[in-house]
Amino acid sequence: KTLSAEEASMQVYPEQGQWLKSMMRAIRARFVLEVGTFTGYSSTCIASSLPADGKLVCLDVSEKYTSIAREAWGRAGLQERIELRLGPGLAEMERMIRDGEGGFDAIFIDADKESYDEYYEAALLLLREGGVVLLDDALWSGRVVGEADAVDEETRSIILLNDKMARDPRVSFILDPIGE
């Protein structure tokens, strides 16, 4: 399916996809959560790097875009490793926390930027000890360089979360400019 130029700009870049594959293999991920699936490129990369008994849980609100993702997963033969849950990602993460569904090796967040802090906090509760949280758009095409009060809400959210993570004693923080 053809995406508009704006939609295409929202996708994960090929070098990011390769980086995700490498990261999943390096940490020997078996159980991964993706928040924000869009058309499925990142989820295809992640799922293809999991062992045969691995599982990727994808959270997204869009039937339109995830229908494209489902086609991609089918073409790649990965549909058995991927579970799609449609609905608000934060609500699903909160349900997972309440139900004790956690222990993820890695969590990849690439959804609405205004909710990044809430996704991050929920991710820390769903992650296994020593697991990895990955956030896309941390540099936001350079827009995060500047004052948090002088930018739009999406950019402000990313700036504030980057600052928070850099000082967060619960995590080791790395900012990698892959794809930026």
Rank of each mutant, 00 (worst) to 15 (best):
D152N: 15
S9C: 10
L175H: 00
E15W: 08
D136S: 02
D112M: 11
T155L: 05
L50Q: 04
A72I: 00
R167F: 05
L56C: 02
R28Q: 15
G54R: 08
A8W: 11
D168Y: 01
K164S: 01
W73N: 11
I158H: 02
C58K: 05
I159Q: 04
A72G: 14
I68A: 14
D53S: 10
E92K: 13
W140R: 00
D53G: 05
V151N: 07
E6W: 10
L90V: 08
D110A: 07
S115W: 10
E121D: 15
P177E: 06
R156W: 03
E118T: 00
E180V: 13
S48W: 02
E94N: 12
G142Y: 02
A72Q: 14
I27Q: 08
E92H: 14
R143G: 04
G179N: 06
W73R: 09
E80I: 10
D152F: 02
L160C: 09
K164M: 01
Q79N: 14
S141Y: 10
L86H: 13
T155P: 04
R128G: 09
A52L: 13
S9G: 13
V12C: 13
E80G: 13
I107D: 00
A47V: 04
G74I: 04
P177V: 02
I109A: 01
D110W: 05
E114D: 11
E94G: 01
D136H: 10
R98Y: 05
Y65S: 11
Y13I: 12
